[in-house]
Amino acid sequence: MRSYLIDEVSAENMERIEQHLTEKGFKGPLDHIYYIPFPQEMLNDEQQQHYGECGPYMLVLETGRNWLKLELLVRGRGKLRCSCISYCTPEQRQQMIDFLDTFIRELDIPI
């Protein structure tokens, strides 16, 4: 799995990050799993065509004791398996990494 990992985060800051993720409505059905909405304008052609059946699209963020891992696989919430499920393009990857970095920076957490 391709992913973006941020580690060596203090327990206090991890708690703040998880609380803010939950407040934003990103909490998934499992502990320490969050669904980060994927911007509709960044979807590829196939994902846009499948949006009604497979969307909305998201990336999965997993948190641990002192780390966060953003999986760089664009998933649809409507279906688990489809040809539209794919790894981020370089542009999509950069935008989502920037999103996570900004999210953490706005909490004034040094990383």
Results as ranks from 00 to 15, higher is better:
Met1Ala: 15
Arg2Gln: 12
Arg2Met: 07
Ser3Gln: 10
Ser3Arg: 12
Tyr4Pro: 00
Ile6Pro: 02
Asp7Phe: 02
Glu8His: 11
Glu8Ala: 09
Glu12Pro: 01
Arg16Thr: 12
Arg16Ser: 04
Ile17Thr: 08
His20Trp: 09
His20Cys: 02
His20Met: 07
Glu23Arg: 07
Lys24Gln: 14
Lys24Trp: 02
Gly25Glu: 08
Phe26Ala: 12
Gly28Phe: 05
Pro29Cys: 09
Asp31Cys: 00
Ile36Tyr: 03
Ile36Leu: 13
Pro37Ala: 13
Pro37Ser: 12
Pro37Asn: 10
Phe38Ile: 02
Phe38Gln: 04
Pro39Asp: 11
Gln40Gly: 09
Gln40Ile: 04
Asn44Tyr: 04
Asn44Phe: 06
Asp45Gln: 12
Gln47Lys: 07
Gln48Asp: 11
Gln49Leu: 13
Gln49Lys: 13
Tyr51Phe: 12
Tyr51Gly: 00
Tyr51Glu: 09
Tyr51Ile: 11
Gly52Asp: 15
Gly52Tyr: 05
Cys54Gly: 08
Gly55Met: 03
Gly55Lys: 03
Gly55Asn: 05
Met58Lys: 09
Leu59Val: 04
Leu59Asp: 01
Leu59Trp: 00
Leu61Gln: 01
Gly64Ile: 00
Asn66Cys: 11
Leu68His: 01
Leu72Phe: 08
Leu72Ile: 06
Leu72Val: 11
Leu73Asp: 02
Arg75Asn: 11
Arg75Thr: 03
Gly76His: 04
Arg77Met: 14
Gly78Cys: 09
Arg81Ser: 12
Ser83Phe: 01
Ser83Asp: 07
Ser83Thr: 13
Tyr87His: 10
Glu91Phe: 07
Gln92Ser: 08
Gln94Phe: 05
Gln95Asn: 10
Gln95Met: 03
Ile97Lys: 10
Ile97Asp: 06
Asp98Thr: 11
Phe99Ser: 10
Asp101Val: 05
Asp101Ile: 03
Thr102Asp: 05
Arg105Pro: 00
Leu107Thr: 08
Leu107Pro: 08
Leu107Tyr: 03
Ile109Pro: 06
Ile109Glu: 09
Ile111Leu: 15
